[in-house]
């Protein structure tokens, strides 16, 4: 055979390439990149939200999603509503949810008040879903920071659902060939220079779209405004030129998502505690950073397993040999 050893391996690797579904042979080895400087981001200001759900409609329109019907109708004793998912699901990537306490008479008050929450993918800086996905189906784009899902990769193990601290990825349990669905920050619209469907639809500027840094600065500006002072709230984007003046609410002095769980690209302002809005209190780093540190520590370069294996195999080798000897001796004696 006049094929050289080198060429032989080449052929082998081409075979492997084909087997891998013509995808790049390089492992999709990602690293936490932090927030890309020009990352598209969303600011949700719960105090501006009027619960009109225009964003839900805008989202469905932008992404071609079906309408939903759920047990919520039964809960409220109504029927034939237009669209009513009881939470995020594979057809509703964005949901306005309600926090309610006591007689729910005043908006943005913790006791005897109510507040709205816009539930959707937070596009974490250290996405737990990306860390746990065994097939690298969920990946955070290093440039846009958008966490997207690869239909050709996912094996449907749903570890992402276990991992996500915000319960975002949704799985089509009712389908024979299910998919994972969640907000992809209107990647397709951004590519065309448009803004997300939700921020375009929002009439009050509760959902504001922009680059992360300017959006964060806007959030901080709002926190600095005294309660009751009139503030010109921008609508859709900071640069849209449309503003709606209104008195500032009594904000909780914290931008949720600036640091929580390692930070997110979707940040939230509110007047009621974030935990009441279904945003858990998270440490400054993601849970996955912990489990990764553990795994990497234990399995760094596979040194520990290989050493352990060496020891185990050696022990087994010695003991099996000894056993054989004893057996042979026993046979000989017999």
């Amino acid at each position: 055979m006049n094929i050289e050893r080198r060429d032989f391996f080449k052929i082998l690797s081409i075979g492997a390439l084909t087997a891998a579904g013509s995808k790049s042979v390089q492992a999709r080895d990602w690293q936490y990149t932090g927030r890309p400087p020009k990352a598209p981001a969303l600011l949700y200001d719960s105090t501006l939200c009027i619960g009109c759900k225009a964003c839900e409609v805008g989202c469905k329109k932008a992404n071609g999603l079906d309408l939903d019907h759920s047990d919520l109708e039964k809960t409220f004793g109504v029927s034939n509503t237009w669209d009513c998912a009881d939470d995020l699901d594979t057809n509703s990537w964005l949901k306005i949810k309600l926090y309610k306490n006591g007689d729910a008479s005043v908006k943005d008050r913790e006791t005897d008040g109510f507040a709205f929450m816009r539930s959707a993918c937070m596009h974490c800086v250290e996405p737990d879903c990306q860390s746990v996905c065994p097939t690298s189906a969920l990946l955070k784009d290093p440039e846009t920071g958008i966490v997207s899902w690869d239909v050709d990769a996912c094996c449907g193990c749903r570890y992402c659902q276990v991992a996500c601290p915000f319960a975002i990825p949704k799985f089509e349990y009712e389908k024979a060939f299910p998919k994972i669905e969640k907000c992809f920050l209107c990647e397709h619209r951004l590519a065309e220079g448009q803004i997300t469907g939700c921020s375009e639809a929002c009439p009050t500027g509760a959902t504001l779209f922009g680059e992360y840094e300017t959006i964060l600065a806007e959030a901080k500006r709002r926190l600095a405004v005294k309660e009751g002072d009139t503030y010109d709230y921008p609508v859709h984007t900071l640069e849209s030129g449309v503003t709606k003046p209104r008195p500032a609410a009594k904000y909780i002095n914290h931008v949720y998502g600036e640091k929580d769980g390692g930070g997110t690209q979707y940040i939230v302002l509110s007047a009621v505690p974030f935990s009441k809005l279904g945003l858990p209190k998270l440490p400054e780093h993601s849970s996955s950073s912990k489990s990764e540190a553990l795994q990497h520590g234990l399995y760094q370069g596979l040194i520990a397993p290989i050493v352990l294996f060496g020891g185990l195999a050696a022990a087994a080798f010695r003991n099996v040999r000894q056993e054989e000897k004893e057996e042979r001796r026993a046979q000989d004696e017999a």
Binding site: P134, T135, A153
Partner: peptide, 28 residues
């Protein structure tokens, strides 16, 4: 039985797809 997209289960071991950061990769 449990994984939803069983026809792509092999991706867990496929170069180009496998994710060594995931605990699941090691378990699988």
């Amino acid at each position: 039985l449990d994984v939803g997209r069983y026809w792509q289960l092999h991706n867990v071991f496929m170069p180009g797809y496998y994710n060594p950061h995931s605990v699941m990769f090691e378990v699988a």
